[in-house]
Simulated scan of single mutants.
Amino acid sequence: MGYANWTYDAILYLYALSLLFYFSDFMSASRRAKRIGTGLLIFVWLLQTGFLISRFIFYFELPELTSFVYWLAFSWLLVTLSLIISRFFKVEYMVFFVNVISFAVVALNLYASPAQDRDYALWQTTRELLFIHISLILCAYAALTIGALLSAMYLFLHHRLKSKRWTQSIRRYPSLDMIERYADRAVIIGVPLLAMSLAVAATMLIVGGQAMLLLDWKVLTSFASLLAYIVYIYQRAINNRPGQQLAKLYMFAFGMLILSVLANSVSSFH
């Protein structure tokens, strides 16, 4: 059983890492990131396949299919379809979003893990999901904070260069292109982590019969901040907005993120 738990944890964390590389390709059309993301996703598919086969063999004599195996098979099917889409149809955006849903299913499936003591299992599962949620969102906060600092630096340096106010300290700043490039990397890391964290949190509330808590101020502001970052990504990847406009939009999105953090004090359960 311990081996199975380690295998499932490996599936979960490798899946999250794969999504980070896919998002990097989503942002900057990086073939290297796509190859790494696809390689990790194939490894996740192999682990899921082996895990499913072992479960089917172990529970072969049971009269019904457990919900754990059912949802694991559903996630495996989504991964399989995403690999087929990536290989034959080249719809990269679809691959990313399908796998975000599949990742949420994998995390949610921890609730269906069988154990002899169901009360203890539920407590342990909730604790594990909470750990995943908190770990993901703290990493997202760190990455997006770095991105906000870089965006503020971009706005400051752009203003000084435009007004031709040169000083010795300004000469020590990196170029605007370099600042923009590193800010993009912060988004590539932070936004998918934020999305995965919120997906795990939302599924925890829904499965736990507390769907009304999705209307909590903390939850609403968190999803609003994610939406603001999605708008930033759309303007960056599709509309090719100038760097100054993107930096301002990033600062607005970060302001929404700060608002969601401050909403802890008015949240009914955080």
Results as ranks from 00 to 15, higher is better:
S82Q: 02
L83S: 06
I84Y: 08
I85F: 07
S86D: 14
S86H: 07
S86R: 09
S86V: 03
S86K: 07
F88E: 13
F88D: 13
F89D: 02
F89Y: 10
K90H: 15
K90I: 02
K90M: 07
V91Y: 11
Y93S: 13
M94C: 06
M94L: 15
V98T: 10
V100L: 14
V100Q: 05
F103S: 10
A104T: 04
V105S: 05
V105N: 03
V106R: 09
A107K: 03
A107S: 11
L108W: 04
L108K: 06
L110F: 11
A112S: 12
A112C: 09
S113V: 09
S113T: 03
S113G: 04
P114V: 00
A115P: 00
Q116H: 12
D117M: 01
R118G: 04
R118Y: 10
D119W: 02
A121E: 09
Q124F: 13
Q124L: 14
T125N: 11
R127V: 03
E128F: 13
E128P: 02
L129R: 13
L129K: 13
L130K: 03
L130S: 11
H133F: 11
I134V: 14
S135K: 06
L136E: 00
L138I: 14
C139M: 14
A140D: 01
Y141K: 08
Y141L: 11
A142D: 03
L144R: 09
L144N: 09
T145N: 06
I146L: 14
I146E: 12
I146H: 07
G147W: 00
G147E: 09
A148N: 09
A148C: 12
A148G: 10
A148I: 07
L149G: 15
L150F: 12
L150W: 07
M153L: 14
M153D: 01
Y154N: 06
Y154D: 08
Y154T: 12
L155N: 05
F156D: 10
F156R: 14
L157C: 12
H158E: 12
H158T: 01
H158K: 10
H158N: 11
H159A: 12
H159C: 04
R160D: 11
R160T: 05
R160K: 15
L161Y: 05
L161F: 06
K162C: 01
S163P: 05
R165H: 12
R165C: 06
W166L: 15
T167A: 08
T167I: 05
T167C: 06
Q168D: 14
S169I: 09
I170V: 14
I170Y: 03
I170P: 01
R171V: 11
R172C: 06
R172F: 10
R172P: 02
Y173T: 10
P174S: 11
S175L: 00
L176E: 12
D177L: 08
E180A: 14
E180D: 15
E180M: 11
R181V: 09
Y182L: 07
D184G: 15
D184Y: 00
R185L: 12
R185F: 08
A186M: 12
A186Q: 09
V187R: 04
I189T: 06
I189D: 03
V191H: 03
V191F: 05
L194S: 11
L194M: 15
A195Q: 08
S197K: 07
L198R: 01
A199Y: 03
V200A: 06
V200I: 12
A201V: 10
A201T: 11
A202Q: 08
